[in-house]
Amino acid sequence: MKFDLTIALADRPGQLIRALEPIAKNGGNIVSIIHEREEPSAGLVPVSLVVDFPSALNLRRTVDELRRMGIGIIRAEEIIDTSRLTVILIGKMDLKRLANAGVENIRIVGFEVSNPASDDACLRVELEVPTASVEEALDAFKRIAEEEGALLLSPI
């Protein structure tokens, strides 16, 4: 599992090396580091790491240790792989229902409508969906379309 771990380090030599130790100890494999030295504020430099941990528990232990060491945690969250998904709906359809389909982290990034007022209304929606939830999202959209009397066209 990949995590965005952004920490605040004191702008002094050796701080980064020190912070990496608990990550390694907890099984974290560092994918990338962005050290933003040009943006110090109050003597602290933000460092953004992408770390591959075996589980969320390893991340939590790392975060606890970093805090004990006096290192500030700006962000510690899972990075969710997203996929771009295009669907077309034929029939009257409330766009909000797709966004609130009960699948987490769905984002509508674009849409196009033709004949909005008629029964042949046609809606193309571009969505960002967590890659792991694509099937779940398509099932949910299909169910919603059926409830609304619309026809869902999903990609193969």
Binding site: T86, I88, I90, E112, S114, N115, C122, R124, E126, P155
Partner: peptide
């Protein structure tokens, strides 16, 4: 039967 010309055009515009 329910596939309309508009739907085909919308699809075509996004390369489907």
């Amino acid at each position: 039967r329910r596939v309309t010309q508009e739907a085909v055009s919308l699809a075509k515009r996004s390369n489907f």
